[in-house]
Amino acid sequence: MATFFFLVAAILTVWGLYIGFFVAPTDFQQGESYRIIFIHVPAAWMSMLIYLVMSFWAAIGLIMNTRLSSMMAHALAPTGALMTFVALWTGAFWGRPTWGAWWVWDARLTSELILLFLYIGYMALRASIEDPRRGDRASAILALVGVVNVPIIYFSVQWWNTLHQGASVSLTKSPTMATSMLTGMLVMALAFWMYSIAVSLMRVRRIIRDREGNATWLSESSGVQ
């Protein structure tokens, strides 16, 4: 099943990049540097979406005591962390030409950084607890506490940012999006989404095999292996 999502992701990426580089016009204000938007914004969206989906699975695993959902949360975390890192990296690379600095304490970039810390915290807690049962449930609690705090962090950073610096040119207020720019970005977002699903499915299969080597229900469900 994972390979299906990989294929879709590959096709969408090619299509998205084609639009991004060949169809979308040069931006009158930022020239060509705005083309980074085609991976920066999708990565940022995915980093947030994956955290929410991860917390959803974590909650299900905690409440229903179902091991598979906790494993799904465990499988999503690295991809979410990767997306956050990509969003930060591309944000810095985009900020350099537009704002003249590698790192700007823009509200969104800052909360993206904190989101990366949340992912790192989740994975660090998961890695340091040997017993998988306790690892699942402890990290599930951390993910849920994180989900409650993400809006708080975002708004306090927003308030803090406007207090100190005044509203700097934030990313989405960039020039009105030509339709092709928007479609390019949406296609790339979809591609990133498919990619994340594919990677997480592959990782969850590996986690299942590592952890439940002999469990009977495993052999039926993944007989194809």
Binding site: I114, L118, G121, S128, L142, G146, S156
Partner: peptide
């Protein structure tokens, strides 16, 4: 919350600060 999550886990105090610092940011701000 961080202290309770890392009970009996090796490297507890360092781990607790990694888990909890992001949640301290709004209070600090």
């Amino acid at each position: 919350i961080g202290a309770a999550l890392t009970l009996g886990v090796r490297g507890g105090t360092a781990l607790t600060s990694i888990l909890i610092l992001p949640f301290y940011v709004p209070v600090l701000i």
